[in-house]
Design a protein around this nucleic acid. Structure first.
Lengths: 343, 343
DNA sequence: TTTTAGCACTCTCAAGCTGAGAGTGCTAAA
DNA sequence: TTTAGCACTCTCAGCTTGAGAGTGCTAAAA
């Protein structure tokens, strides 16, 4: 679809104005507000053209125009200027990461919070996760009686902890010995390699190895790491979600982990690190997202550890700014991950 | 305030009916629906009495009656029958805990999910937390270069992890040695006792001890453990939150961690384990909760590890059922905590 | 050929009105 | 003390109406 420069200008202005006001935009208003060098009639003709191409829509005969989802897609694909974030915003964000505790969990929470605040929408951040579970380190810590706390560290820094109940009480000394032995034996092994080591272990060691294997298999099976959400209440203040049923639908997809994993798995997980994906109005697939748009990105090291971040807001969303923010935060997280977690 | 049995009955029925329908309740409706052995005029007289005592309210002259917050308080304090949960519900819940992975995090998430589903409202669960940080176990795990992952286990099973950057690279062997030495030295020590041990350590050991102390101090300072939320979208379907601005206010207090910690600190943290606290309409203190009620309980071992659980819903909430559910889940968690985490 | 002024037309939305319905309080009788 | 009866009050959904905003079309101007 080829538009003239003037048509592109008018589409852009309508989208800008509509994002600002949440109202249909009329020809006269547009000429006045932006002091265009043409009459409203000319604008009307162009609007009619854009409406024919389904980039604009009229809510009713005598209302102004509203961008269609197709219109937003054209805008995001062709017209949005990749401005990048203003320098002082970048500085503020970097500063916050620099100031926070050196702890992935904190960073991820902070990332979610930054995204939510900057975009005034709901945000999600998944912990970096590797498709392949590689053993790194095991600790066994006696708590009381036969209850033992198992801490399993995977290559890449994912930590899994679990209580296990042994057949009979074992002292901390013994537990440490077993943990050491397993750590040495299994170092840098994947599930297959580890399951071949059973023969070299006594009964207790085998039991624990079983539990390790189960835990690692579970990690491999899950599509993402821990999920952090923030800013759910932000979207409630948007006028399109003033009837809370709409909001409920949209937020439900964030709250229901399985839905969210599905969404991520079929979109951003196939994308390259560094690329941005924009889902507008559910793209015909995601019924619950019909009223929303989602801006997603992947961060981390494509070959080992990756996670996703995203922003969920109304379709009427300031895409340029949101995309810049998501891209910037993804880069910051990528840097942090490669600095601290990489092998 | 002393009410006759009949007045109590009528108040109870009005509250039941209002909770069911979210509408003002009229005298005639009440007599019909509950086939009362008296005329609507009698009911009207009693209603007038209850209205004088500010237990009921008329939204306008010719509408039925609606319970006031005072009315709900009287109801919760005097009239709610402590039925306990039906046996099969209890079984279902217990079963879910029994089936889940043996892992506090899973249990807490499950508790939040159970509360949200059973009460069809928003729920919160805080991880068990001890006011006093007592050292139990330390692990140091080399990641790469000078980055080290520190895992600190406190008495009671709280786990804190953090990346630290050492002055110069140290091998995993050496790290394990240091961790072992510190674990032995500090075992069962509190912050004061630990800070006296500096003299017995080399430079690196002292650095790490400093970090440990900072981390433990941070833990002591924070009022609660990790917070798990669920069911935020449940409250969006209640008619009183159909204008999403109301919902926004209410949910915001859950999302903003500092607000929530404040709320917990000034209510449930002073209560006994086992007791239930019901906040109705913010009780004049919590502006954001004017439209909501919160049912809170504390679980765990009062002397060592405690956490809070709660349900946030509309004032028009099925208190009997919610209170039973909260009490039951608190007991389940208390049992789990004392079985697995206690010293 | 493109742009613009002018005009008739369309549709929404807020305001005002209205009657049905639900509920009340009061009074007098049971 | 309870109840039947009645006049009264208030809301709410449905309807009408006029102002306002915006459109498409046509014919003239550039």
């Amino acid at each position: 679809m080829q538009l003239t420069d003037r048509q592109k200008l008018i589409l852009t202005l309508i989208i800008h104005e509509h994002i600002r006001t949440a109202q249909p935009v009329g020809s006269k208003t547009l000429v006045q507000k932006y002091t265009l060098e043409m009459s409203s009639a000319t604008v009307r003709n162009e609007m009619a053209f854009l409406t024919d191409y389904e980039l604009l829509r009229q809510p009713h005969t005598s209302a102004g125009r509203v961008p269609t989802e197709e219109g937003y897609r054209y805008f995001v694909g062709n017209l949005v200027q990749k401005s990048g974030l203003p320098t002082n915003t970048r500085r503020t964000i970097t500063h916050q990461f620099y100031q926070s505790r050196q702890d992935i969990e904190q960073w991820l929470k902070l990332a979610a919070s930054v995204l939510a605040n900057q975009s005034q929408a709901a945000s999600l951040v998944t912990a970096p996760h590797s498709e392949k579970a590689i053993f790194k380190h095991l600790e066994l810590i006696a708590t009381r009686g036969r209850q033992v706390l198992m801490v399993l560290v995977l290559m890449g820094g994912e930590i899994r902890q679990q209580f296990i109940a042994l057949q009979e009480p074992v002292s901390q000394e013994q537990l440490s010995q077993i943990a050491n032995r397993l750590t040495h034996l299994c170092s840098r092994c994947d599930i297959q390699q580890m399951s071949r080591l059973k023969g070299q272990l006594d009964a207790l060691g085998q039991d624990i190895l079983e539990i390790l294997l189960a835990e690692m298999a579970l990690t491999e099976r899950s599509a993402t790491g821990e999920i952090y959400l923030d800013g759910m209440t932000n979207v409630l203040s948007e006028p399109e979600f003033s009837e809370s049923d709409e909001a409920r639908q949209a937020l439900h997809i964030l709250e229901e982990r399985s839905l969210l994993e599905n969404l991520l798995a079929s979109t951003v997980m196939n994308a390259d690190v560094g690329g941005i994906q924009v889902l507008i109005g559910g793209e015909g697939t995601w019924e619950e997202l019909r009223q929303c748009s989602v801006v997603l990105a992947r961060y981390g090291d494509p070959n080992t550890l990756t996670g996703s971040i995203g922003v969920l807001g109304p379709i009427r969303m300031p895409y340029d700014r949101t995309i810049s923010t998501v891209r910037f935060v993804a880069n910051v997280l990528s840097d942090l991950v490669s600095e601290t977690l990489a092998v």
